Amino acid sequence: PTIVLKVSPEELKALEKAGVEIEKIEKNEDGELYITLTPEALKKAGFE
């Protein structure tokens, strides 16, 4: 199962800087950012 999270541009930068593997980055028509994370990326980021 993949996880989709709504993030701010600042959060996205912080995640990328931390080396979190982001599978997909999407922006909706309201300009909101959503990222898709794999279970492996979540484990690496410390989420179980």
Rank of each mutant, 00 (worst) to 15 (best):
P1R: 13
P1G: 14
P1L: 13
T2F: 15
T2C: 14
T2K: 08
T2D: 05
T2G: 08
T2Y: 15
I3N: 03
I3T: 11
I3G: 02
I3E: 02
I3R: 12
I3W: 14
I3Q: 07
V4I: 08
V4Q: 06
V4H: 04
V4G: 02
V4E: 03
L5D: 00
L5N: 01
L5P: 00
L5S: 01
L5I: 05
L5Q: 02
L5G: 00
K6G: 02
K6E: 01
K6M: 09
K6N: 04
K6D: 00
K6Y: 10
K6W: 13
K6H: 06
V7G: 01
V7C: 04
V7Y: 01
V7M: 08
V7F: 02
V7H: 00
V7I: 13
V7S: 02
S8C: 09
S8H: 06
S8I: 02
S8R: 11
S8E: 03
P9T: 08
P9W: 09
P9M: 06
P9A: 09
P9I: 09
P9H: 09
P9D: 06
P9C: 08
P9V: 08
E10F: 15
E10W: 15
E10P: 04
E10D: 12
E10Y: 14
E10C: 15
E10H: 10
E10V: 11
E11D: 11
E11N: 06
E11K: 14
E11F: 15
E11S: 09
L12N: 00
L12E: 00
L12K: 02
L12D: 00
L12G: 01
L12P: 00
K13T: 10
K13I: 10
K13D: 11
K13Y: 15
K13L: 13
K13V: 11
A14L: 15
A14H: 12
A14V: 14
A14S: 09
A14N: 05
A14T: 14
A14Q: 13
A14Y: 14
A14F: 14
A14G: 07
L15K: 00
L15H: 01
L15Y: 13
L15A: 02
L15R: 00
L15P: 00
L15W: 13
E16G: 06
E16H: 12
E16I: 13
E16P: 00
E16F: 15
E16V: 13
K17I: 11
K17N: 09
K17W: 12
K17H: 09
K17M: 12
K17Y: 12
K17V: 11
K17A: 11
K17F: 11
A18N: 09
A18E: 06
A18T: 06
A18Q: 11
A18G: 08
A18S: 08
A18M: 14
A18K: 14
G19H: 07
G19I: 01
G19V: 01
G19D: 04
G19C: 06
G19E: 06
V20E: 00
V20C: 06
V20T: 03
V20M: 03
V20R: 01
E21M: 07
E21G: 05
E21H: 07
E21R: 06
E21T: 07
E21P: 09
E21L: 07
E21S: 07
I22T: 02
I22K: 00
I22N: 01
E23D: 07
E23F: 15
E23N: 09
E23Y: 15
E23M: 13
E23K: 07
E23S: 09
E23T: 08
K24A: 11
K24R: 12
K24S: 11
K24F: 09
K24D: 04
I25V: 09
I25C: 07
I25K: 05
I25P: 01
I25Q: 03
E26W: 15
E26I: 09
E26Q: 09
E26N: 07
K27N: 07
K27F: 13
K27M: 11
K27P: 07
K27Y: 13
K27Q: 11
N28F: 07
N28K: 11
N28S: 10
N28R: 12
N28G: 11
N28P: 02
N28W: 08
E29G: 12
E29T: 09
E29I: 10
E29K: 12
E29V: 12
E29R: 11
E29P: 09
D30L: 11
D30T: 12
D30Q: 13
D30K: 11
D30F: 13
G31R: 02
G31P: 01
G31H: 03
G31L: 03
G31E: 04
G31A: 03
G31N: 07
E32D: 12
E32M: 14
E32K: 10
E32T: 15
E32I: 11
L33G: 01
L33R: 01
L33A: 04
L33D: 01
L33E: 01
Y34K: 04
Y34P: 00
Y34G: 01
Y34S: 05
Y34Q: 05
Y34W: 14
Y34D: 01
Y34I: 09
I35R: 00
I35K: 00
I35S: 00
I35D: 00
I35C: 03
I35Q: 00
I35P: 00
I35V: 12
T36W: 15
T36N: 02
T36C: 06
T36S: 08
L37Q: 00
L37A: 09
L37D: 00
L37C: 04
T38D: 05
T38Y: 02
T38S: 05
T38G: 05
P39N: 11
P39V: 15
P39M: 15
E40L: 09
E40G: 04
E40I: 05
E40R: 04
A41E: 13
A41N: 08
A41R: 02
A41Y: 02
A41T: 04
A41F: 03
A41L: 02
L42P: 02
L42F: 15
L42C: 10
L42S: 04
L42V: 10
L42E: 02
L42D: 01
L42G: 03
L42N: 02
K43E: 14
K43M: 12
K43Q: 09
K43G: 08
K43V: 08
K43A: 14
K43R: 14
K43P: 02
K44D: 13
K44R: 04
K44Q: 07
K44M: 08
K44V: 08
K44C: 06
K44G: 07
K44E: 08
A45F: 10
A45D: 03
A45E: 03
A45K: 03
A45C: 09
A45Q: 02
A45W: 10
A45P: 06
G46L: 05
G46W: 06
G46H: 04
G46S: 02
G46A: 04
F47D: 06
F47N: 05
F47R: 08
F47C: 13
F47S: 05
F47V: 12
F47P: 03
E48D: 12
E48R: 02
E48F: 06
E48S: 04
E48V: 06
E48H: 04
E48N: 05
E48G: 07
